[in-house]
Amino acid sequence: MLTAFDPVTKGIVISVAAVLAATPLVFLAMQAAGKLNEKLRKELWTRYLSWLVIAPLLMVPVLAGRVWTILGVGVLSLFCYREYARATGLFRHHALSATVALGIALLTFAALDHWYDFFVAVPSLMVLILAMVAVGADQPSGYIQRVALAVFGLLLFGVCLSHLGYFANDKAYRPIVLMIILCTELNDIFAFITGKAFGRRRLAPQTSPNKTIGGSVGSLVLTTALVAWLAGPIFSGTPLDHPVHRIAMGLIVSIGGQFGDLVLSSIKRDLGVKDLAVVIPGHGGLLDRFDSLLLVAPAMFHYVGYFWELGLDQPARLLSGGL
């Protein structure tokens, strides 16, 4: 089945499957060596079982095709916004939440239609619609807070994330999207491991007390190296086939990922909640898992798009049928 895909896509899928298959053996070996106490063992297994569900949910739509990738990102955006709305209290304002959901639906439509002008128009149009809808309640007290929260939610979980789906309008989207997801997730893991090994000074103690400068630098080096390596075959023969671009993309993934994480930590600290939801056992909410992708998706999209014309050789306005 995998033979239809390019070597990088095949490589990523096989590697992830192999790592997931081998992980229980590592746990068993660690247990046999007496390196796991009961609490750690339980936590590792919970996290592992969650990954067994998350990994296919992320990869299968990307492999299945353009439409599934864009719809999958649209659904992820809606669920992420839902967590945010419930944590901020915005969910009680039904008209505003429904308008944000409409904005996410329109962004998803623009991506499905491959209509970039509309994709760019939706954010600004939705801002004015949100400002108007909020007037409807005739409740000036708290107006700025409500509109600002809704606009922030739309931009962060709708606009930012939908760029990941828009990649699918390029013929060669699979390895790019898979590389972004894989390296962003690994960036977190690299930061955790190198932080444990070399972390001394804390990076932002008020925002996220467990993050260290050692972890941040460690993940920057490792993620950049991994992206630079994977980007070689992916962008071979394109204007991005140059070491400077490959390293730049690595830096974007690592720095964007770390800031995405810190942005969500800041939101959680400000709200005074530990996790944004309790959906994924061992992880917390969807946003606790996918926060790093929020900033990486648009940053990578525009970097790649600036130097290499993403999807421009593909038919546009597939559904709306315009010019």
Binding site: R86, G89, S141, L271, V273, D275, A277, V278
Partner: peptide
């Protein structure tokens, strides 16, 4: 100007079930 105040859902920290 009034301070922003957030009111998370009362059941925000409960798992779905």
């Amino acid at each position: 100007m009034s301070e922003w105040s957030y009111q998370p859902a009362a059941d925000q920290e409960l798992p779905p079930g």
